[in-house]
Design a protein around this nucleic acid. Structure first.
Lengths: 207, 207
DNA sequence: GGCTATAGGTTGACATCGTCTGCCAAGTCG
DNA sequence: CGACTTGGCAGACGATGTCAACCTATAGCC
C-alpha cells in the first residue's frame, strides 16, 4: 500500500544516496554503475531510466553538496561580529565542509570532467562559483564592491582557502602539524591579508 | 649501426614521451594504453614489457616532473636577495611550474591514486614532499629550524601556493582578474605573512 | 660455426567497464 | 476494455586494462 509512493522520485534519491555512500567509501573512480545499482537493489541498466549517464549522478551529488555549502557560508557571513570574525567563520566553514564532504569537493575541484564546456560540467562550475560568491560579497562589503582590488583579494583568498582543503585531502599521510593550529593560523593570516585595517598584525597596503 | 642503441632504455623514453604528450593533449583519464602504444608504434601489450601497469607510466612521469620542480625551486632559493625576494621567486616558480606542467601537477595533487599506501603512490608522495622541502627550508631559515611555528607557517604557505595553482587549473573558465596581478598580489601577501618583519618586496616581473 | 638464453615483439583472449536496444509488467486514463 | 506511459529486466556492444602463449633475433658461450 505505502509501497506505491516511491515510484516517482524516491528511486532517484535512493540511487543518489547509494552513490554518495559508495563514493565516500571507495573513492570516485572506483565505483561502478553496477555497484550503485546493486546497492539500490535494481539492475544496472535501470539506472539509465533516472540518469542519462554515470557522470550525471556525480554531478547532481556535487551540485547539491555545494548548495548546502553556500547556505552554510551565508549563515556564517550573516552572523554578527567584525568583518574579520565573519571572514574567519566563513573560512572555518569552508574548510570544514571540504574535509567532511570529501567526495563532493573532489568532484567539484579535483576531477577533470571531460566536457567542461558541455552542460554537465557547467552545473558544477555554477554551483561552486555561487559558493565563492558569498566570499566575494563579504570582501566587497569591506573593500567596495566595484573596486578591482576587491576582486583580486577575493580570488586570492579563495585560492588560499581552497589550497588548505585540497592539500589536506590530497596528502592525508603527510606529517601535518596539529590541524586545529594549522587551520587557525591559516585563517588568521588570511583575515589579516584580506581586510584593510583589522586588529591583528596586518600587512602594509601599498599607497 | 646507430639503430642498435635503442634496444635498452630508448623505448622506455619513447613511451614516456608519447604518454606525456597525450596526457597534455587529452587529459589524464582520456588516454588509453592503446593510444600510447600506437603513438610509439608498437602493439599495446608490449608496453607491459617496460612498465608493470598503466599507472606506472603516469607515476614515473610525475616523479620526474617533480624532480625538475625541486631543482627549479632550489635555484630560486639559492639566488641572492632578501628572504622575501627569495620566497617570492620560489612562489613564482612553483605556480609557473604548476601551470606549465598541468598533467604532472594533476597526477601529483588532483588524482585519487587507488593504492596510496602501496608503492606507486608513495613515489609521488615522496617527490612532491621533497619539493615542499625547499620551501620548508627557506621558512626554517628565517623562523628557526626547530620552531613549531616554522612548520605551521611553511605548511600554511604551501597550502596558499597550491591553492592558486589548483584553482587556476580546475577553473580555467572562471572570470579571473588579470593573472599577473592576481599571482603577484597573492605572492606579496604570502611573503608578508610568512616572514616576520619584511617590508613588502614587490619585485614586479613582466615576461 | 653452431647452440642456447633472453629481451622485446606479436597475436589473441579475458573480465570488466559504461552504454544501448528490445522486451515485459503494471498502473492510468480515455 | 484498450492504449499509453513508467520503470524494470536480460542481453549485447565496443572499449579498456591486463594476461598468456608464442615468435624472433641478437649476444654470448662452447
Amino acid at each position: 500500500m505505502a509501497f506505491q509512493i516511491d515510484t516517482t522520485q524516491h528511486r532517484r534519491e535512493q540511487i543518489l544516496d547509494a552513490a554518495r555512500q559508495l563514493f565516500a567509501d571507495k573513492g570516485l573512480h572506483h565505483v561502478t554503475t553496477r555497484q550503485i545499482a546493486a546497492a539500490v537493489g535494481i539492475s544496472q541498466p535501470s539506472l539509465y531510466a533516472h540518469f542519462p549517464n554515470r557522470d550525471s549522478i556525480t554531478v547532481e551529488l556535487c551540485v547539491r553538496a555545494f548548495d548546502t555549502l553556500q547556505a552554510r557560508l551565508q549563515a556564517a557571513v550573516a552572523g554578527t561580529g567584525t568583518p574579520a570574525q565573519r571572514l574567519f567563520r566563513l573560512g572555518l566553514d569552508y574548510i570544514g565542509f571540504g574535509l567532511q564532504n570529501e567526495a563532493a569537493y573532489r568532484i567539484a575541484f579535483m576531477a577533470d570532467l571531460p566536457n567542461d564546456a558541455s552542460g554537465q560540467g557547467n552545473l558544477v562550475l555554477q554551483a561552486s562559483v555561487q559558493a565563492f560568491g558569498v566570499l566575494h560579497g563579504l570582501i566587497g562589503e569591506v573593500h567596495g564592491h566595484g573596486q578591482p582590488e576587491s576582486d583580486v583579494i577575493a580570488q586570492s583568498t579563495w585560492a588560499s582557502l581552497h589550497g588548505m582543503v585540497a592539500l589536506l585531502l590530497a596528502r592525508p599521510q603527510f606529517p601535518w602539524v596539529d590541524l586545529e593550529t594549522l587551520i587557525a593560523t591559516h585563517l588568521d593570516q588570511l583575515c589579516a591579508m584580506a581586510l584593510p585595517d583589522a586588529a591583528a598584525p596586518a600587512p602594509q597596503s601599498a599607497p
